[in-house]
Each structure stands twice: as C-alpha cells, then as structure tokens.
Design a protein around this nucleic acid. Structure first.
Lengths: 204, 204, 204, 204
DNA sequence: GATGAATGAGACTTCATTCAT
DNA sequence: CATGAATGAAGTCTCATTCAT
C-alpha cells in the first residue's frame, strides 16, 4: 500500500485545500470517532469533494499517515522549543519546563495527541511514532548532558533519557485521561517533578 | 449496541466452543492484524461456522468485549497473585515482585496485553480497561498501606499507587517494544526498581 | 489480478446460482452492451445479490473469464460433435458438416460467439480463446488426415487446417454480421463450400 | 452522444496539438491497454492539458471516433494505392499486390489495425469500420471487373469481392497473431495466394 | 444446535467533465 | 487559448448478519 501523498500543493489555494483535508480528518476522528473516519465524511467536513481528497492522497491510509506525520511534526517542534537551552539554564529549569510541557502546555492539544495514539497502531505507522519517541529521547539526552555536572555521576544518560521520556509520557497521558478538564492535576504534576528530580539527583 | 453474550455455555462442549472462539479472535488479531478481524475469519480460525459464533455473541462488538474481558480477568488474577502478601513480606519484596511481574513474568503474555491495548480504544471499552487499571491501583495502594511504616511519611498512598501503576506499565510496555525478545532489559528493570525505591523511601 | 473462481458450487442450489450468474452476465452483455456490464447489473439480472456473486468470483474480471471459458467449452463440444467421424464418412461430408456448423447450426448461438469475441480482447484472455482455436485446428487436422487419400497430395495438413479454420471462422462471422437474421446466407455458404473444396481437391 | 469534433484546427500549431492528441491516444491504447484509456492519461501522453483536449473533442467517445476515423482513412488510402490499376496490369498482379499488402506492407502498422479492431466494438462505431470494409469490397470488386475476362464466368463479382476481403483480412490477421515478428509467414501467404487464385480461376 | 449460502448497506476509489484563473 | 484544480456520479467490493436446511 502506497502511503505517499500524490502531489504536494504548489499554489496557495491548493495548500489551503490540503490543510482543510488534514484538519478535517482530525476533526472527524476526535469528534466522531474512528468509525466515522471515512473518506466521504472527511471530505464533507473539510468542505471539499472526495475527488479533491484523492488528488492529494492515493488512499485512506495515506491520509491517515499524513495526519500522523503532521501531528508528530507539531509535537517535536513544540517539544524542542520547550527544552531550548535559552529557556532553561539549570537542570531544575529543564525539569520544570518538561513537566510544564507535558502537563500544562501540552494539554492544550491533548486531543491531537490522543488522535495519533489511537491511529498509529491501526496503521503500519508504529515506526513513524517511534521516530518521534527516539527524537524526543535524543533531545532529552542532550539536555541532560548539558547539565551533567548536576546529575548523580553513576547515571547513564541514554537510559535516563529513555526513563524520563517513558514515564513523563505515561503520566501526562494518564493525567489527561483521568481529568480531561485538567482542573486539578497539580498533584500528579508535582509528584512527577519529585519523581524525576529524585531519580536524577540522588546518588545510588 | 448490545455487547452482552447471548448465552453462557453450560455444557463442557459448548464451553470449548466459546473458548475456541475467544482464542481464535486473539489469534487473528495478533497474527493477522485488526484489518483481518472479521467474523468470518474468526469463525474459520476457531473452527466453527459464523452461525455458531452468532449463537453466543449478538454482534462483533460483543465478541471484542468478551476478548477484552477475558484478557483483563487473566491480568488481574496474575497481578493480585504476584503481590499476594504471603509472598512479599517487606516493601522491598513487593517492589521486586512488581518489577518482576511487569518485566519478567508479564512479558510471557505481552501479546495478549498488546492485543487488548490496541483493541480497547477502538471499541467503547476504554471504560473496561479503566476498571482494570483502577483495580490494579487499589491493589497497589493496599500493598503500600500494609507497609506504611517503611514509606516516607508525607506520601499520599493513593497518588503513589497511581504513579507506580502508571510508570511501571509504561516502562514494561516500552521494554517489550524496544526489545521484544527480552534478552537484555536488565538495565531498564533495574532503573525502574531504583526509580520506585527512591520515590517511596526518600523523604521530601 | 486473480481470475480464478473463489470456490466451485457443491450443492445443487449453489450450482444453480452460479449458472444464473454466468447466464445473467451473457444476457447483460448481449442485450445491454459492454457499458452495462457492471457487477450490480449482472447480479440484478441473475436474480441474486452482489454479495453472492462475489462469493464465487473475486472480481469482475474473474466473472468475465468464467463466461469466456463456458462459451469456449460449449463451442468445442459442439464443434467436435459436428465433425465426429460417425457422422461424416467422406471428405465431402466433412466439408458440408463444417459449413453447416459454421453457417447454420452455429448461428443458433451466434450471440454467445459474438459476446466472447468482444469480451476476449478486453481481458488478458486472448490466450484462452487461442487455446480454442488451436484445438479446433487440431480437430480439423485429424479430420483431414482421416481423408488423406481424397486430398491433393502436396497439401500440408497442418497448414490446411489453419487455413480452413481461419477462413471459415471469418466467413461465418461475416455472414452473421451482414445478415443477423440469417435469412439468405446461402450464397456465402455455397461460396465457402466451393472455396474449401477447390482448395483441398485441386492439385497444384 | 455527440461525437463530432468541436472544431477543426486551422493554424498549424493547433493542427500539431490535435495530432499529438490523436497519436497520444493510440500510444496509450497500444502501450497501456484499454483500461488506461482515460482522458487524463491521453492528455498527459500528448503533452497537453485535459482542458485543451476538451477544446477539440466534446467527450471521450468523440476522441475515440477520431482515432478510428484517422486509422480508417490511412488504411483505405494505402489499400487503394496498392491495387491502383497503374500498378497491377494482370489479375495475377492484383492478387500478388493484395497478398503483399495484407501480409507484408500491412503488417508494418498492424498495431494501429489492432487498436481499431479492439476499439470499434466498444464504441458504437462498428458502422464506421463497416464503411471501411464496404469500401474495400467496392475497390476489390471494381478491380475484379477490370479483369472480368480472366475470371471464371459463373462468378458473382460482388460475392467474390466479399469472399476475398473477408478471407484475406482474416488470414493476414492470423499471420500477425501467430508470428508477430513476421519472420516466416511465407507458407500462409503462399497458401492464401493459392486459395484466391483457385477460387477465381477455376470454373465450376 | 450447527451450518454456510445469501443478503445488501455502505465503504473506497476512479475518472469524465467543467470553469475560474 | 491553455491550464489543472475541483467536482461528484457511479462503479467495485467487503463484511456483519440472517435464516432455511
């Protein structure tokens, strides 16, 4: 199954069309569920005809992949931005930024996140999300290395980055699931901060 | 949509039929993917006719729910057994048992786990897995309370149980994904032990 | 593209169903033209549902192939029967039988013939009709050899069989096209007899 | 369905465009098959846009008709030229020219021939090819009449012309199909010559 | 109680054709 | 005049479900 887009929009009008298609897909998935993810429904929601949709994507799977890809890009840009070294000078800053990103900022678009999480296993695109995860781990690792002097010396940076990525992802996800309105996740966020802090600073 | 089984098998032979159907479904999902999860394929794999399948389950969703339920039951029994107080006398024992369960024992059936994880969001059965999670958290919480004297006093047992359940689940899942053969997850398991230990024992 | 039937009908009811599908296809092609050859139309005409059609044939092409195959079988049986040696004792008998078959008997089902002729090039089944042609040539050749003593000695039997098959097929086809009602093809039939007779009997 | 061209090209540039469209259609049909005969594909192959194509032909059928017409014209011109009385003085000359045309010259463009043969029944244009056939028969008939004194007196010129046209067409086609490379059709060509010669010269 | 042939709604996808730029 | 993005009717095919045997 070919999942590459058929062509990239060149004109501004076409770019807007493609955007509408992608956003329409996300809307359908979030508002109406996977069962409603049909090409006809997406086209309708995007305000274009099915034919137009198929001019840009060769099949439904390709459309789903495009959505996953777009969400992944957005995520990585925001993630890297959150941990930008101009923002976090100390390791404490970084941990705060990370928790903040996961629990506070990130929850601004938790739905897109959920959308991808439910979509990815259904396609052959576990690899695509895996790339995101690996990139995130790399970003975390280099952040840790920048602050190596603040970290317990026996800690393996790569393993630590994996640990942090995995646990933070899970905790943030859990927070969203438990309390979608995000009104009172402070306790979970605080505990997450404590967990990571202890893990990084405590010598064995 | 009615998801209750139509009737429970009474005779041994009928019980075997139902078993074959449930196991057939799991096989199809794991070996051939969600796309192949059709009632016809399941019946074929189970060695029965579609008609028979429909004698026990009123529709496809009910079948999926039955699979999820069965996997959840199995999981909870094993989990409760692992943390049984006759097995773990100290908190350290418990932590060891937990990590062991998640990384070592649990990985014996990681596929059934994955099967449910991918299936649940696709049905309306997120609630059913949520019940499992909550039960697991309860089990963990009571385990913690049994050892309250060993734990840093300012810790909220409920929150801690949630933290542990969430992170362990994530780390075990990650371990399986990263290294399906489970040949060398020692480092992740060790780090998980360290993470939980620090979290529970270190005073704020 | 797979053009094999999905399964052969075993029960009598299923056999009737398959028959209805094949005949329905031929009806549609002849009465309504190739443009109307849609799976939905065929199913309707056959008095079954599309689903039933697809239980026996994996796709439209397979259905078309089945039609071609059936028509070819019928043709060959009739052809071999017409030239059966118990019927034609002399070479003149054979020629008469051949012309008769092509112009008179054969025109009873000229429509099925036309149906295949128009269908075959559109599929990859030129080979299938080629087999028919080759078989017909073989039958003709053995007929000629049975009467070798009556034939001009310098004639190559294989070539002659090919010549006869080709010209008779064309002349019969032409007769049908020119005068579908077959009211007055005597002249063409007579000329065909004369053509073949001269060709076989006249020494160079 | 209107199959007339929308307008005829007046300027040389426009004529080139129309040529490109017609040739592009033939290319597509021969190289990629009838399934690929779509207006988009033709336009692409012709190096023009769909819009341009629709400026000259009101619909797909009109385009197909134009192709058939062009091929028919080419054929008739070549055919008439082959039998031109300045070329063939005796009837033997004519027969030779005819066989030559069918087997030797004609096979230079057997593909265009095939293209039309497969196209015509699919459109309502059997009549158009019928016109070609009738014209060819007329040409043959007048050729025969020019040599009436050489022909067996009881022969009906019209019927004979039909017989010859039909058999030669079939034999040439068969030769192309059997041996596309045309390396060794001598035997078939020789036999064809013999067939026609016997037919015309032998008194009843 | 089991079977599996039959059903048909509905999903995906193509492609002839138009029209604003 | 040429372009090619957009349209949407129509066709192919699947699969959950029923019911006569």
């Amino acid at each position: 199954m070919d999942v590459k887009p058929r062509k990239s929009p060149r004109q501004a009008r076409a770019k807007a069309t493609v955007d509408a298609i992608i956003e329409g897909t996300i809307q359908v998935l979030l508002d109406e569920g996977y069962e409603s993810f049909t090409t006809a429904r997406v086209a309708e929601r995007a305000g274009v005809s099915v034919g137009t949709l198929y001019q840009y994507y060769p099949n439904k799977a390709a459309l789903a992949v495009a959505v996953v890809d777009r969400c992944c890009e957005e995520f990585l840009i925001a993630f890297e931005n959150a941990l930008d070294e101009r923002r976090c000078t100390t390791l404490d800053d970084c941990i705060r930024a990370l928790v903040d990103f996961a629990f506070v900022s990130h929850h601004v678009t938790p739905e897109r996140h959920r959308c991808v999480l439910e979509l990815a296993p259904r396609l052959g695109v576990a690899d695509r999300t895996e790339v995101v995860r690996k990139t995130a781990v790399k970003v975390l690792e280099s952040t840790l290395r920048r602050h190596a002097d603040e970290i317990a010396p026996e800690i393996d940076m790569t393993v630590a980055a994996t640990m942090i990525e995995t646990t933070m992802e899970a905790l943030a996800h859990r927070a969203v699931m438990t309390d979608p309105a995000q009104t009172q996740n402070d306790s979970l966020a605080k505990e997450a901060t404590r967990l990571i802090t202890l893990y990084l600073f405590t010598g064995k």
